[in-house]
Design a protein around this nucleic acid. Sequence first.
DNA 1: TATTGTTATACTCTATAACTATA
DNA 2: TATAGTTATAGAGTATAACAATA
Lengths: 147, 147
Amino acid sequence: MATARSTNTEDELTSLASDLRLACQQISRRVRYEGTLAIAPHKFSVLARLGHGPLTPGELAEIERVTAPSMTKTINHLAEAGLVERRPHPDDGRQVLISRTPAGDDLFDRVAGQRDTWMSGQLSELSDAERAELRRVLPVLNKVAGR
Amino acid sequence: MATARSTNTEDELTSLASDLRLACQQISRRVRYEGTLAIAPHKFSVLARLGHGPLTPGELAEIERVTAPSMTKTINHLAEAGLVERRPHPDDGRQVLISRTPAGDDLFDRVAGQRDTWMSGQLSELSDAERAELRRVLPVLNKVAGR
DNA sequence: TATTGTTATACTCTATAACTATA
DNA sequence: TATAGTTATAGAGTATAACAATA
């Protein structure tokens, strides 16, 4: 019976894993396609990371899971567009601090708003009860996401 | 009062939209990075679409939201790898039907299993109540995703 | 000598434009 | 003439390897 119960639990886990993955992937895909027009997704993502203060290229590369040279290129594009700027690190001459410019702040706010427009539209078609259900389950989703 | 309530509702909607988006994106990103090693994501996605029967390149391009030439290239790679095959359309000589080969079925099953391993691991660390909560909210998530 | 960041080079994925075959 | 698919060519993003500057 322990075996049967274990197998059952495992099947349920696998099925839930697959269903939840598909739902989250579909939502991400739609958000991605419906929202971003003014800036490429990976560039927008870097701008988002800089929202709480400056970061080094190395930190950004690790967070975004790309190599250091790739991040350098992305930073170059953003800097040429006037959206971020490089500043020398106060304590370590090897490092560089990347921060958003006011133009970067503006663009981020604008695109972030656009992006959530689609999601808000989808949510507005739900019932109050369904939205409350989503709100309640958010902590669990964040746990799954690993934060 | 109608205005106050409306504003409040709007704020809640925006906040929920943003939180839900972030959670889903984070989960998708982790699934993507943790899982797929044996095949590139966009190729795997095409294999997945062919799970319920053959499709034409045009249909695949539309579903995957890429241009027809891009899909042709992806199909070429998959065909060269022996994972899909082209067959003439029975009714319309202009069209082509793409279907998975047995090797394509095998690879899909294997990678799909790997991919859900990470998600299953995350889910296994939740309580029974939390998993039940996720299971209950899935239909709402699918509604948000637009299906 | 180790670390941080950049430059050099190549590969993959995607797109637009032009072409072929069939309806 | 319109449609489905492919081929030609170019642009964007990423990776590995090699290099420069600082700790």
